[in-house]
Nucleic acid binder design. Sequence first.
DNA 1: CGCCGTCTTGACGAATCTCAAATAAAGTGG
DNA 2: CCACTTTATTTGAGATTCGTCAAGACGGCG
Lengths: 265, 265
Amino acid sequence: MRVVTVVHSAPSLADAPPLRVESMLRGVGSYAPMCAICSMCRQREACLPVGLVVDPAVGRSQNVGRRRRVARSAPLYRTGEHFGMFHAIRLGSFKTTLLLENGQEQVGGFYLPGEILGSDGVDTGLYGCEAVALEDSEVCSFSIDALEAHVDVQSGTGQIMQRVFGREIAREQRVMLMLGTMAAEQRLAAFLLDLSQRYAALGYSSREFVLRLTRAEIGSYLGLKLETISRMLSRFHRDGLIQVQGRVLKLLDLEALKKLLDRST
Amino acid sequence: MRVVTVVHSAPSLADAPPLRVESMLRGVGSYAPMCAICSMCRQREACLPVGLVVDPAVGRSQNVGRRRRVARSAPLYRTGEHFGMFHAIRLGSFKTTLLLENGQEQVGGFYLPGEILGSDGVDTGLYGCEAVALEDSEVCSFSIDALEAHVDVQSGTGQIMQRVFGREIAREQRVMLMLGTMAAEQRLAAFLLDLSQRYAALGYSSREFVLRLTRAEIGSYLGLKLETISRMLSRFHRDGLIQVQGRVLKLLDLEALKKLLDRST
DNA sequence: CGCCGTCTTGACGAATCTCAAATAAAGTGG
DNA sequence: CCACTTTATTTGAGATTCGTCAAGACGGCG
């Protein structure tokens, strides 16, 4: 018997996502959509679906960024390329991967609409990782220089860049914490809850979504092997915490998942 | 039989470190000392020991930061405190720790002179971790606002903040990579080589130094238990890669240590 | 000198990885 | 749209690594 379920998913080029402005503008929580950049962009109406915050008080209206489509599994940028741009995701999703000396690749992050790629290139002037689209996607690329030209000196670009970088640093800190302290079961639970929150912040269901990553990619991201991910998903399913069929996921018991994280050791 | 060795160590308040300007100004490699901030500081001559880069071309000379001493095992800032300042380390060393819900603490970073603490507070406006001095130390604290007042609008603070944030992001990315892909042996080797490079960049020996962290702290940082750290150090010692006696460490075979990192799996 | 925090080492067990095989799903070319 | 190829997923059995528990050694300090 096959259960077919229609679930909400991240916005894609195929199915235009519904606008849910109220939830987009709602909060400033850990995953609330952000970025004052777009308040200055001429495209901001069309761009709303990405969930960037609009500040109607700002009068300027210019094209800050350049829109660009990236086909599924195509790179937005590659390791070692010259860094020049940040990229705000308008539609779709991306992973970033780091290449190790021995040829392995490690998934370093998973990014949704409204999130910003490229911070890793700032240090050396070269992108430190590769960003690959997980589905047909669209980004808005902008350079810091271009940005500075559009922001009045008073507020400075500091505010904006601080938020961009601060987010990334905070995100990486959470990942480090997870990798450093959690067992496999907890890592996966944390990952699923993280996705749940982020989809919710975008106005999508927090309990049903499609995994855009393979088991191997999730495993890489969590510092585990794909078999372990598969086993854990099966266990969660068996225990009634989730319902999983391929990449279609339903979180049945968010409380139980959260409880898994409290356990020490 | 006990071998007593005098080794170079990080600068401390007790023993004034030798000035080695040539090596401090040398490179822009991964761990080269950095920060244009200090080029504007009235204290810059006295501050040189921390290894911050001085740009004599800049004419201005003001007190950008406020000097502050932090006693061993005292906190520079605590989790949840209001974020206002960045802190450049002038002397000594710090660890940052994250507090988990269940009471455990995780070491998130280890910082040496010339490195900058506090980036983790930018996102939320509250420090995301606790910074504790590992020995009697001294920092130079400055706010972004104060900094902006001293920098001419042309160059902007963007350059400076980008470097600060970029460093931290790159550092965290390396840690994630380590935690996500390496076995215990490789993690410890990577940690030792990292220290080696960083001490070298400060003008100290890259082959002999004192560990400022306990085995438990190293373990926490590397996502391992203190017993594992102890065992690995013993193994490296037995295999002739290092010489270790308590916290006094000598790297005998850097090449072999590097080779450990190449191994796949 | 004796306490206490740190470190070392051993024995054992649990968690995770490795290898392997079978199944399911997705992509491809005709 | 089908047949076929490739890739992804599940599951099991056994190996390995690392954590846990415990005992004792070391070293600094009052």
